[in-house]
Design a protein around this nucleic acid. Structure first.
Length: 271
DNA sequence: CTTGTCACCTGAGCGC
DNA sequence: TGCGCTCAGGTGACAA
């Protein structure tokens, strides 16, 4: 099973949007408040509020209303489904948001690394305040990333996974983007040329867009009770392929730990 | 400021 | 059949 990265979160966002946009929250049912942070008791103030927008910032899902927004993070094993009200509750179903159209948004998360929080008024939640740029927006340019890596000796893989620099690039797509760009994951940030930085930015955008397109087709059953995540596995070039031949040059792929994260790359294609 | 390390949590997969 | 071990990983907290 793979973790929800930005493409999976975006696919979830676009999948739930038609079911809950403009709907009124009837009730918030909390079965286990012990997520990464305890679910705040006063989150119930969002009951009777209408969802005005279903947005995403990085890997955070934002259910917006006129009094503020509900913030959902899927962590590593979180999943959201839209179900009918009588669907039986299973282990790890930690909260429901019920709507006046008789649908419920059910959050399931075995590892409880996710979050269910909120902010009110015009406040920016502290978790969202320090986030960097969205990788798929125009503001994520070669020049921007180049300026961010100038004084950094950290591995480029670590830098692109830093949410203060750019959001939504997790371990899987970081490895894939570096392969696509032909860049060695350990390259110190400051050593990247502007040209290589440009290649990397393009690779990140390309890999995320492709994954979102895939998700759009393979995840579309997320709203039924099976809710099987259909990820991007069949497209992965390096992630999880340690010791297997590079699809490009047949060299056996190399495994490395970079800041405690498993990293696979091709020593021949990535310099 | 940067950089590195750890904790949180549970299920899957494996060796024995 | 089942026990115990390791691994997976987003991200905040904290140390250096």
């Amino acid at each position: 099973m793979l973790m929800p990265e930005l493409p999976e979160v975006e696919t979830t966002r676009s999948g739930i949007e038609p079911h809950i946009a403009s709907q009124k929250i009837e009730k918030i049912i909390i079965r286990d408040k012990r997520l990464r942070w305890p679910i705040p008791a006063d989150i119930h103030q969002f009951e009777q509020q209408k969802i005005t927008n279903v947005a995403r910032r990085g890997k955070y899902l934002l259910l917006q209303t006129s009094i503020g927004q509900l913030i959902i993070h899927l962590g590593m094993s979180g999943r959201i489904r839209i179900l009918s009200e009588q669907t039986p509750v299973n282990k790890h179903d930690h909260f429901d948001i019920t709507f006046n159209n008789n649908k419920i948004l059910r959050y399931t998360d075995p590892r409880r690394f996710g979050a269910f929080l909120f902010s009110t008024g015009n406040d920016t939640h502290p978790l969202l305040a320090t986030l960097g740029v969205e990788p798929l927006e125009k503001s994520f340019t070669a020049r921007y990333l180049f300026s961010q890596i100038q004084n950094k000796s950290a591995a480029i893989k670590t830098i692109i996974m830093d949410s203060k620099v750019v959001v939504g690039v997790g371990n899987i797509y970081a490895a894939e983007a570096l392969f696509l760009a032909g860049i060695h994951p350990l390259t110190p940030g400051k050593q990247l040329s502007l040209k290589n930085t440009d290649n990397l930015v393009k690779a990140i955008k390309q890999i995320l867009r492709l994954a979102i397109r895939r998700g759009g087709t393979t995840l579309k059953d997320f709203s039924n009770s099976e809710g099987k995540p259909g990820y991007f596995v069949q497209q992965l070039q390096v992630y999880g392929r340690d010791g297997l031949p590079c699809f490009n040059c047949q060299t056996l792929l190399t495994h490395l730990l970079i800041t405690q994260r498993s990293t696979v790359f091709c020593a021949k294609c990535q310099k």
